[in-house]
């Protein structure tokens, strides 16, 4: 059934409205970052104002932006690569060689995400402290990877399930070992799914604030900890906070825009059968 021009128009208007509503806070944050503190709290809010770069200068001067950016890149990429290395064999085994425990195991893995992170703060903190991983990139990569692992395994499992088991079996009969099956058959077939899983893991690690703030101080602090530097209950720092947030989200926003085709394709992969 083809939709009429009116239906198309309504869908387009709805789509744009939702998109603008979702983008508004980000746009307002960027706008606020160019205001002075007094303009930032002006009532009614100002749309026309004299823009300033002073907030950016201030946050870059006081905070260690480049260091935090490097740490964010290292942590999100590191945890994603490590997560994929562990999750791919796990998802492969669960998708193609399921047993009676597979469903329970998957649900149990996901259930670990249902517990608030603060519930395990002390044990994780002490483990990191005793093993010398506190305020280190490797410590945070490990924690981030473990925190995202259930989602990575679930997503990969779903994508792998879309690949017909016969193809895998045929390759096995042709003499392909496990590594060859993964590399030659599974990777090309589930490539978009793996890519979107990786992208999602990067975004989740980039935005994660709880562990970043609690397990780092100076050496491994990523951009989320950098933003937290500019939050204060006494004193107007909204414009500076907006500048810090803009600087922190800009790289991942640009990255998201650049990879949105793969991201959407991967997320909707297998959605319509």
């Amino acid at each position: 059934m083809r939709s009429s021009p009116l239906q198309k128009f309504i869908v387009a208007v709805l789509g744009w409205t939702v998109a603008l509503l979702m983008f508004f806070p980000v746009a307002w944050m960027v706008l606020t970052s160019f205001k002075t503190e007094i303009d930032a709290v002006h009532s009614p809010p100002l749309l026309v104002f004299h823009p300033t770069l002073a907030n950016f200068t201030h946050v870059i001067y006081l905070g260690n932006y480049l260091g935090a950016l490097t740490n964010s890149v290292a942590i999100s990429l590191g945890s994603t690569v490590l997560g994929l290395l562990i999750a791919m064999p796990a998802a492969y085994a669960m998708a193609f060689f399921p047993n009676r425990w597979t469903k329970d195991l998957l649900l149990w893995m996901l259930s670990t995400k249902m517990m608030p992170a603060v519930g395990v703060l002390m044990p994780i903190y002490l483990l990191c402290q005793r093993s010398g991983l506190l305020d280190t990139l490797s410590g945070l990569i490990l924690v981030m990877m473990l925190s995202n692992l259930p989602i990575i395994v679930w997503m990969l499992y779903t994508f792998f399930k879309e690949v017909p088991g016969d193809i895998i079996e045929a390759s096995r009969m042709d003499g392909a070992g496990v590594l060859a099956q993964l590399r030659v058959v599974l990777l090309p077939l589930a490539g978009p799914g793996i890519a979107s899983t990786a992208l999602l893991s990067i975004i989740l690690s980039w935005n994660e604030a709880f562990w970043s703030i609690n397990l780092t101080s100076v050496n491994a602090a990523p951009l989320t900890a950098f933003i937290a530097t500019f939050s204060a209950p006494e004193g107007l720092f909204w414009a500076k906070l907006s500048a810090a947030s803009t600087l922190a989200v800009a790289p991942i926003l640009i990255f998201g825009w650049m990879t949105q085709r793969q991201l959407v394709r991967g997320l909707t992969f297998g959605a319509v059968k």
């Binding site: 006081l62 703060l121 903190y125 506190l134 703030i213 609690n214 101080s217 937290a228 500019f230």
Partner: peptide, 26 residues
Amino acid sequence: IKWVVLEENVLRQRVTTDIATHGGQF
């Protein structure tokens, strides 16, 4: 000097954890 600047409540929680566990980060 290396600075760790945090919002008041977050700072209180971080510092309490560090001191109570003899972390010696600060």
